[in-house]
Design a protein around this nucleic acid. Sequence first.
DNA 1: CGGGTCGTCCACCTTTCGATAGATCCTTGC
DNA 2: GCAAGGATCTATCGAAAGGTGGACGACCCG
Lengths: 219, 219
Amino acid sequence: MVTIRVLVADDQEAAREALRLILNGEPDIDVIATAVDGAEAVHQALLRRPDVVVMDLRMPGMDGIAAIDRLTAAESAPRLLALTTFDLDEYLFGALRAGAAGFLLKDSDPDVLIAAVRELHQGRGLIDPQVTGRLISRFAALSPRPATPELDLLTPREHHVLRLLARGMSNGEIAAACTIEEGTVKTHVNRILTKLGLRTRVHAAIYAYEHGIVTRDAP
Amino acid sequence: MVTIRVLVADDQEAAREALRLILNGEPDIDVIATAVDGAEAVHQALLRRPDVVVMDLRMPGMDGIAAIDRLTAAESAPRLLALTTFDLDEYLFGALRAGAAGFLLKDSDPDVLIAAVRELHQGRGLIDPQVTGRLISRFAALSPRPATPELDLLTPREHHVLRLLARGMSNGEIAAACTIEEGTVKTHVNRILTKLGLRTRVHAAIYAYEHGIVTRDAP
DNA sequence: CGGGTCGTCCACCTTTCGATAGATCCTTGC
DNA sequence: GCAAGGATCTATCGAAAGGTGGACGACCCG
């Protein structure tokens, strides 16, 4: 049997010990270290190389989210399970954005916590059922609208020009990229604006972003 | 006990009947209708007003995602549980973006399906544990980077101008909104570009989007 | 074949934008 | 007090963007 090496980070003595006892009660889980704040968690994690870090989000000094941010940036980063008493969107979204692989509220059963650690260790993610709905809503809100029928109005050339425009290129740069005259690009831009009912190239760039024609660069 | 009214939509006869049997086996669940494709599902849902719709994603004609899109646009929309055999990102993300409240793979246990229907009926969301990790990854990728230290460089006025700019307003419009001269706005824009290391207002708008200074409008 | 539509291209003219220099006000520290 | 620095404001000028008109070729259809 493979032993899962776990680091527990929580500023409250009682919670820290409770977590340690719960997890150490399992034969396949070994709490190899604990930390009382984010800074110590980062230090211990880099030193001891746990498989999974159970991280309280609300801690003095460097908080849990900042610590998660640091740890996921490291090489061979551990799997991060965010844990919190307070069910705030800011914690949920912040932790996931920072790179947490799991999110649990502290009122969960010990069994759920144990199962969560195992899930994470096997490469899967885990979201507390109480907050899954909100994650889904937020995800839907963040997702680009699919291409609308309006985009069919654009010719291939116009579509290409729109993508370059939305990356911040000037008419001159677009012209160079397409090997055509700048005056021609202006016409294309103009037709794009007309067809999509927009006023300036800034609107066109926004449109491209909101419709997923261009995507945010990978971090 | 409240009875949960369920609509089952699946193009395959066998799957449809299996789902019906599983769900009708529960005393608090009543499958009130079935549908063989997306179009019929939409029609039946609007007619029979189920609490929960169990929707197969891969169906001929109007597929499940399109049907979900239609149904969530309706008033007093039912809760939508997306179900699929094929574990494709396109299905997962597409269904959630369209408005599904839950996503399950078809190899799940009957008990899981039943529990999912109850969860959805109680207003919660549900994601198959097998795909939770991917949803989290995608969510993190979509989430705007938190405000970078660079933003501290911007004065309140400049920050405000940036937000208006990123909504497509011209210098003149920004001037009117702030009750200052257009020439002044130009200076603010110029300082924004300088401080953030950008070249044109289009870059500034892109920057604002990528850093979550402005958010996509609600659909 | 001839006419219509569409995509692509270019040139001219006006408006808007971007860069620069300088003025005023307010805070901060010596 | 007053000097230094920053924030906010204004004005001017060359550069870029946007609006309009029109040319050319490809294609479809009667």
